[in-house]
Design a protein around this nucleic acid. Structure first.
Lengths: 371, 371
DNA sequence: TCTATTTAGTCCATAATGTGAACTAAAGGG
DNA sequence: CCCTTTAGTTCACATTATGGACTAAATAGA
C-alpha cells in the first residue's frame, strides 16, 4: 500500500481494471471495455493485447443480431492457460481441486485419511502426491499458485493451532517447501469456505458464513474480503458465550456455543426425516443456542446475511425456525430487520473451492505479475 | 477503487505517499523522503514543491550536529493554512473543535443543551452558530471539511436511529445543508471516539474501543480504519448476550450487557475512592458482565488491545481486575494470550477530536484534492 | 586558508504510459 | 453502390517518473 506509483504500477492497475470487467461482466468488446472503465479505446486495445499474450483472455468475433456498424471482437476469460490449485487438510480427508480462470473445476480428488494427532510432514507428503495426481489429468494448464485450507487458527506466517490435527506453530514457509507448487498460502478452513460460498455459491458480497463441523467457526465476508482479526483468530463463533457457567467446553471454558451446536450435539438428519420428536427437540435446542450466539455476532459485526454451512445444511429446515425466533426476539428494536438466514449451497467442497478461488482472485487482482 | 489510473492519479498517490511520511515520521529532508518512499530525489522535490504551494507543509533548515555534507532542509506539516472541524451533537451538549493539520487543537467550544426528543433543525442551527463562534477566533485557517458525531446508528447516507435524541432517518445531505462548512460527513459517536483515541490517544493501530455511556458501544479499529458493518450498525456491544433471559433491556430484549454495565448500573467513582464495599461489589458485577461480553467480542473480532473509554475510565482500577479474570478464564486455550486491557486517555473529547481527525485523515490521504 | 570529501538538491534528456483526433475496417440501409 | 454507423488502430502529444550530471553547502584535513 505504501509503495510509490510508477508507470508500471499504473499499467498494472489498469490491466487489473480491464481484466476485472471482463471477469465480472462476461465477454466484452474493446469498445465496451473503454466505455465501462473510462479508459480510451487506444489504451484498452493495448491492455487487451497484453492480456492476450499472457494467455489470460481469448477473443472471438461477437455474435450479433443485425446492428449496424463494424462488429466488435469479444474478449473473455480464457480457461486454457492459467489455473489455480485448492488444497485441504481436514480431520479425516485430504482434498485437492484444480479450477481454471473461468471458474470451471477441471479436476478434483479426495482421499480419506485419519489426520487426528498427526505430524505435518507425512500429511503434507500425502497431500503433495494427491495434488500431483490431480494435476496429471490436465497437463496443459499453468498453475498460478495454491492455497491450503486447514481446520485451525492461521496467522500471517504460521498455523497457530489446529486442535483436531494436533498441529501447533507450523510455519507457512515449511508447508510451502513440502509442496511442489508455488506460491502456497495457508488459510483457515471456515474462512475459505466462506469465500467459496462467495465465489461459487449464491451468497451476496456481504455475509457471515457459519461453518458447522466438529467445531463451529465463522468467516465474515465484507465487500468481497475477509475479516481476519489482529492475529488471524477472528470468527471463533464456537466459543461465544451462550450460558455463563454452562457445561465444560474442550477450549477449557464453559457454556460455549460449540457445546450446544457442535456436530456432536446435533441429531442425524435421517432421524429428523423420520419425524423423531427427540431429534426435533435437539435441533430446537441447538438452534436456540446458535440464535443466541448469532445475535451477539450480529450486534458486533452487522452482517447483511447469515449463511449456515457444513453440517447445518441438511438440518436447515429444522434449525432455522429456532434460530430466527431468537434473532427476531433479540434484534428487534435496534435495527430495521434481522439479517436473512440462508443455507449454504456449495456443500463439503466449499473450502477447497474457496482456496482455489483465492488464487484466482490474486491473479485477477494483479495480472501483471503473470504477464 | 474501480477507477482508471492516469498520470494525475499516479501523482496524487505519490503526493499522499510523501505527505504521509512527513505526517508520520516528523520533519524530514527531501533526501530522507526519497530514501523512505523509494521515489527519486527529483520526484520528491517536485512533489514537495506542490505540497508547499498548497500550504500543507512548511520547510526550515535542519538543525544538525556536525555531520559532513550540505545540510538538508526539513519539511514538516504546516499548521498555518489547513484545518478541520469536529462537531458533536450529544444528549446534553453540543461541541465543536478546530484542529490544524499538525493535530494541534486551535479552538474548542462546548455548550450544554438538552437534546432529548429534539428535532434536528433547531439543534443543527445551534450547532452551526457554535461552529461559527469556534471558527471566528482563528480566522486565517482554511477549513477542509467537518465530521459530525451523533449518538446513534449511522449508515451510508443517513442517520438511521439516534434513540436518545429521538432522531430517525435523518439524511446526511439535509444535515450538511444546514451547516456553513463543507463537505460534512456524519458518523457514530463511539466509532469517532475510537478514532480519536487512535489519533490523539495512546492506542495502537489495532484495537477495540469500548465506549461506556448511558448505552455501551464499541468501535473496532483495524489498521487505522473502522469496521462499520453492512449497514453501519456494527459494534453494538451493549446488546451482546450476557444472560439468556436476564433483566429486560430498553432494546426490548433481555440480559444484554447494557443492563449490567451501562452508566445506570455503575457506582459513583467517589464512593469507590471512599472504599465503599457495596460500590466495589457493584463494580465487580459490572466487570464480570463486561468480561463475558468482551470474551465473545474477542472470539469474533480478535482485537489486539481493548481500550475502555467513557465512564469506564475513572472506574478502571476497580473494573479491570474482574474483566481480566473473565477474559483469562474464557480465552485460555485457544489463543496465545487475551488482548491487553487499557483505559482510554482522550477523555470526553474523544469523539469531537476523532471527528476532526477524520477530516485530517482525508486531507492526508488525498492532498491533491486541495492543491 | 585552501582543497578534498560528503551530502542535499536541481537540471535535463529519456522512457513509460495514457489521451485524443484522425484514420482505417467492416458491417447494414437505402 | 454509396452513406452511415460502429470497432479498432495509428500517431503526435501531454504528463510524470527516472537517472546521471551538475550545482550548493557543509565538514575534515593538509
Amino acid at each position: 500500500m505504501n509503495q510509490p506509483v510508477r508507470h508500471g504500477a499504473m499499467r498494472a492497475r489498469n490491466l487489473a481494471l480491464v481484466l476485472g470487467e471482463i471477469a465480472g461482466g462476461g465477454p466484452l468488446t474493446r469498445a465496451a471495455l473503454a466505455e465501462l472503465t473510462g479508459l480510451t479505446k487506444t489504451t484498452v486495445s493495448s491492455l487487451v493485447a497484453d492480456l492476450l499474450s499472457a494467455g489470460l483472455v481469448a477473443q472471438a468475433p461477437a455474435a450479433r443480431g443485425g446492428e449496424r456498424g463494424r462488429p466488435g471482437v469479444e474478449v473473455r476469460l480464457s480457461g486454457e492457460h492459467v489455473a489455480a490449485l485448492g488444497l485441504e487438510v481436514n480431520v479425516d480427508y485430504l482434498a485437492a481441486c484444480l479450477v481454471d480462470l473461468t471458474g470451471a473445476v477441471r479436476a478434483r480428488r479426495t482421499v480419506r485419511a485419519d489426520n487426528r494427532a498427526s505430524r505435518p510432514e507425512p500429511v503434507l507428503a500425502a497431500l503433495d502426491r494427491l495434488a500431483g495426481e490431480t494435476l496429471a489429468g490436465v497437463p496443459s494448464l499453468r498453475v498460478a499458485g495454491a492455497v491450503l485450507a486447514v481446520p485451525g487458527t492461521v496467522g500471517e506466517r504460521r498455523v497457530h493451532h489446529a486442535p483436531h490435527l494436533g498441529w501447533r506453530n507450523v510455519e507457512t514457509a515449511d508447508i510451502a517447501a513440502r509442496l511442489s507448487v508455488a506460491p502456497v498460502a495457508v488459510e483457515n478452513e471456515a474462512n475459505l469456505a466462506a469465500l467459496g460460498e462467495l465465489e461459487f455459491g449464491a451468497a451476496p458480497r456481504d455475509f457471515l458464513y457459519v461453518s458447522g463441523e466438529i467445531g463451529v467457526g465463522a468467516g465474515l465476508v465484507r465487500d468481497g474480503g475477509l475479516l481476519r482479526g489482529s492475529s488471524g483468530l477472528a470468527g471463533e463463533l464456537g466459543h461465544v458465550v451462550v450460558t455463563d457457567g454452562g457445561p465444560a467446553c474442550r477450549c477449557g471454558s464453559r457454556g460455549c456455543l460449540e457445546v450446544y451446536a457442535g456436530r456432536g450435539s446435533l441429531p442425524d438428519p435421517a432421524s429428523l426425516a423420520a419425524d423423531d420428536p427427540r431429534a426435533a427437540a435437539a435441533c430446537r435446542r441447538a438452534g436456540r443456542a446458535l440464535g443466541l450466539a448469532l445475535s451477539s455476532a450480529v450486534n458486533l459485526l452487522d452482517p447483511g446475511t447469515i449463511v449456515l454451512g457444513g453440517c447445518y445444511v441438511p438440518l436447515f429446515p429444522w434449525l432455522a425456525p429456532a434460530v430466527e425466533a431468537v434473532l427476531d426476539e433479540r434484534l428487534g428494536a435496534l435495527r430495521p430487520a434481522p439479517p436473512a438466514l440462508v443455507p449454504a449451497v456449495t456443500g463439503p467442497d466449499a473450502a477447497v473451492l474457496g482456496a482455489a478461488g483465492q488464487v484466482l482472485r490474486r491473479v485477477l487482482a494483479d495480472p501483471a505479475s503473470l504477464a
